[in-house]
Amino acid sequence: MNRNRIEGSWEQVKGSLQETWGKLTGNDLDVIEGDRKQLAGKIQERYGIAQDEVEAQIKKWNDSAYDRVK
Rank of each mutant, 00 (worst) to 15 (best):
K70F: 10
E45G: 02
Q18G: 05
V54G: 02
N62F: 00
Q57W: 01
Q57K: 15
I49L: 09
R5C: 08
K60S: 05
D67Y: 01
Q51F: 00
D63M: 14
E33D: 15
T20G: 05
A40S: 14
Q38R: 11
Q57R: 15
G48E: 13
R46T: 01
G8T: 07
K70G: 02
R46A: 09
Q57L: 15
V54E: 01
Q12R: 08
G34P: 07
E19R: 11
E19Q: 13
R68S: 12
D67R: 13
V54T: 03
R68A: 14
W61F: 13
V54I: 09
R5I: 12
K14P: 06
E53R: 08
S9D: 11
R36L: 08
A50E: 15
R36T: 13
A40H: 04
I43R: 03
E55K: 08
E45W: 07
W21R: 06
Q18T: 11
S64M: 10
I32H: 02
K59H: 11
D67A: 07
Y66W: 10
I6R: 02
G8D: 02
D28I: 08
D63P: 00
E55N: 10
Y66S: 13
Y47F: 13
S16H: 10
E11I: 14
R68N: 08
N2P: 14
V69K: 15
R3E: 14
E55V: 05
E7V: 02
K37M: 06
S16G: 11
V31H: 12
E55T: 03
W21T: 04
Q38S: 06
K70T: 01
T20A: 11
G26N: 01
Q12D: 13
S9L: 06
K42D: 00
G15Y: 07
R46F: 03
A56C: 04
R5H: 10
D30M: 09
N4S: 14
E53Q: 11
Q38T: 05
A40P: 01
K37A: 12
D28K: 02
K37I: 06
E11G: 04
K42W: 12
G48D: 07
W61K: 04
L17V: 05
G48T: 05
N2C: 06
G48Q: 07
Y66L: 10
W61R: 03
I32V: 15
A65Y: 05
A56N: 10
Q38D: 02
W10C: 03
I43E: 00
L17R: 01
D35S: 06
A65W: 01
Q44M: 15
V69L: 15
L29G: 03
G22S: 11
M1R: 07
D28E: 05
Y66Q: 14
L17A: 11
Q44V: 03
D35W: 03
K59N: 09
G26S: 08
G41P: 00
D52A: 09
Q51L: 03
E7C: 00
